Simulated scan of single mutants.
Amino acid sequence: MDTLHALARALGLPTSALIGDQAEAAARAEPDHRPLSLAEIRRAVAPVRGLGGTTLAAPPGEPPAPEVLRRRLHAADRAYQANDYATALSSLPPLLLGVRAAAGLATDSTRPAALVLVARTLHLSGNLLIQLRAGDLAQTALTAALDAAEDAGDQVVAATVVQGMCWLLMRQGRLAEAAELATRTADQIEPRFSRATPAELAAWGWLAMGAAAAYARDNRPDVAADLVDAAAAAAVRIGERAPDSEHLMMVGGFGSARVQMQRVENAAVAGDPGRVLSLAEVVPSGPTPVGSSWQRHRLDVAWAHAEQRQYADATAVLLQLQERAPAWLRHQRYARDIVRQIAEGRRRAMSTELAGLAALVGCTP
């Protein structure tokens, strides 16, 4: 994608115009680390159904109480944000079965809340599957999450699920679709700033940043910049107010720091390492509530150092990420490209630390 975007900038074209048939790339099946086993989460996200709608994944007996299910969901969310994918991956399948069973037994009055719990659990599952590069299964989870949120009539939850779908579309190179989906949904839910809740503002702000990320990659930097400015206004309006604790941590992770990270990301996409480092100076030095966002930001900083041949600084940033989030780093092809750039640009023998990074991300200089 970086190469295509550079070509698009040179030719003055949308990046999406240069994306052709991906069948050959899929057939090559470029090597990657073996993902954690997905068998159980696959069974829970896409259960086998028989005649009459019966499912083979139905748990025996009564499901746990709603408050128990909510506690388990937030524990899985904390594990995911802490890059503990093994814990999240093991806890989500039984949780999915439980929330679906609870929704099936809900009364008319309790059904909306039960469906919201289903939507949030599927949304978290979809996000985790995107991180693990199981895109088709992630799309199944997010589609089901959106259906549940809309059935519940919860616009905020539905909008945050759409943002997850936009992230997936960008991972698939479907930039124009991601941009259109994010902007159209943002227009549909645009809140009145004077009376919107923090969660409503956050959901809209995430969509604006998702659209900005897609437009930046599609070589439309001016549109991307305007959208980031709009997201910044929402972040200012939220201020120190926190969304309701029932939401996933991603909703509460929207704020001015995350908006600044998006500005940095757009500069990296535009191929401007100097601007990346300048904008990054005002981003918090420590992790933010949405850990993967801060980690992705630090990769932009590492890339900028590598582009300016500041290989020691780039390596230091990567080592920090290796210490904090090795499971996350292992799945980042962006990190692999940066490590390869450092390894091939160095003037001395590869250090032990750099060799360890190369082994972690699957880079063979």
Results as ranks from 00 to 15, higher is better:
residue 140 T to W: 09
residue 177 E to K: 10
residue 150 E to S: 12
residue 166 C to L: 01
residue 159 A to W: 04
residue 135 G to C: 02
residue 188 Q to Y: 07
residue 200 E to N: 00
residue 136 D to L: 01
residue 174 R to L: 13
residue 173 G to H: 05
residue 157 V to E: 13
residue 172 Q to V: 03
residue 157 V to I: 15
residue 189 I to S: 05
residue 187 D to P: 00
residue 148 A to I: 10
residue 179 A to L: 07
residue 180 E to D: 11
residue 146 L to F: 13
residue 164 G to M: 01
residue 188 Q to G: 06
residue 172 Q to F: 05
residue 174 R to F: 04
residue 180 E to T: 12
residue 162 V to W: 05
residue 173 G to V: 00
residue 175 L to Q: 11
residue 173 G to E: 01
residue 159 A to L: 01
residue 182 A to K: 01
residue 163 Q to W: 13
residue 142 L to W: 04
residue 171 R to K: 11
residue 174 R to Q: 14
residue 146 L to C: 03
residue 136 D to V: 04
residue 179 A to I: 00
residue 169 L to I: 08
residue 196 A to G: 06
residue 136 D to E: 12
residue 161 V to Q: 13
residue 144 A to K: 13
residue 183 T to D: 14
residue 186 A to N: 12
residue 168 L to K: 04
residue 198 P to I: 07
residue 181 L to C: 02
residue 138 A to H: 11
residue 139 Q to A: 15
residue 174 R to P: 04
residue 173 G to N: 02
residue 200 E to R: 07
residue 167 W to Q: 04
residue 185 T to I: 06
residue 141 A to C: 07
residue 187 D to V: 07
residue 189 I to V: 15
residue 149 A to Q: 06
residue 197 T to V: 10
residue 144 A to P: 08
residue 146 L to H: 12
residue 139 Q to C: 05
residue 160 T to C: 12
residue 186 A to T: 08
residue 165 M to I: 09
residue 171 R to A: 13
residue 149 A to K: 05
